[in-house]
Design a protein around this nucleic acid. Structure first.
Lengths: 170, 170
DNA sequence: CAATAATGATCAGTATACCACTTAATTTGC
DNA sequence: GCAAATTAAGTGGTATACTGATCATTATTG
């Protein structure tokens, strides 16, 4: 199976030796562009709420699981632990989350979402959905399905290429 | 045609009211993850060369067109003009590019790539291709084609959602 | 049980990536 | 022809996102 996929890919390369000549032929470039577009759509949808997409992802995770240490949150959200700590620090300073030392492991910081945090998540949830919808609006059902499957396959296969490998799925 | 696409998308929403419940069901989240993975693959491939993916994109553009002002470069690469100025400043300080006032428009800064810059682009080109290949390796030919088409459709349709709308294609 | 390894967090530093505001030069519109 | 609008850069600020180093605590192992 794996070999089959590899040989198919190799055949693309053989047939199209100049496949990455144009920026618009580079998947990595297009992914960066689309990422920025999604950030833009999310920010637009959350106008005035002063919440970033990553901050919302962290709050979403905290909503699902009552308490969790910083590193686990960072892994689930798929960001570096130092980025995660930065984001959580900002959430705490805004009163959307609290932090305290774990009794079991005194190295770990356990993060809790506050009631204000939960309220904000409930408020932003439909706005997040709107941003997602707007991004994928140009796609047909079939394209959407293939697109999502392709994303998941590439992320799964290259999980170790990023410093924040995703160990779990919420 | 546009209406047709919209109604197809709407039908997904009706059938799957909880389609964005899980992080792995959110296209924006997956795009962010894949973007980070591609950065990781590129950095890995360029081990020791101290060049980022965005820096290489800028140098690529400069290689294709001999001279260009900062704003045009930023637009083509798809980054904010201030980010572009930052990146170009670093390239200049490393001797990979030069900057000078335009004679025609004394507001504009014209950027040139140096011979050292061209040499670096030639050296990095195959490494960039390797990073692209590795990212899309898990995809079949058909998935790759649909994935690329989907990316282009979404970027085209939402071009104005990002502050750096792409006016041209190199 | 003590030396070692692994782990969770922090700090300092760098590189995007954006916004808001300002300055200077060019276009425009009357 | 000159005021007004536009445009290219610059400045200062914030938020990811990562690396490398360090520190404290916990786990392992000889």
């Amino acid at each position: 199976m794996k070999n089959n996929v590899v040989s198919e890919q190799a055949s693309i390369k053989t047939v199209h030796p100049e496949k990455y000549a144009d920026l618009w032929d580079r998947p990595g470039y297009l992914v960066r562009r689309l990422h920025q577009i999604h950030i833009g759509l999310f920010t637009q949808a959350c106008e005035g709420l002063d919440l970033t997409a990553v901050q919302f992802a962290v709050l979403s995770v905290l909503c699902a699981d009552a308490e969790m240490d910083q590193l686990s949150i960072s892994k689930i959200v798929g960001i570096d632990r130092t980025s995660g700590a930065d984001v959580i620090k900002r959430l705490v300073s805004r009163g959307l989350a609290t932090r305290e030392r774990s009794k079991q492991d005194r190295r770990a910081l356990i993060v809790h979402i506050t009631e204000a945090g939960r309220r904000l998540v409930r408020e932003v949830q439909p706005l997040m959905e709107e941003a997602q919808d707007r991004m994928v609006l140009p796609l047909t059902c079939e394209e959407y399905e293939v697109f999502m499957r392709a994303l998941r396959k590439m992320i799964d296969a290259n999980n170790d290429a990023s410093r924040a490998p995703m160990s779990q799925r919420i």
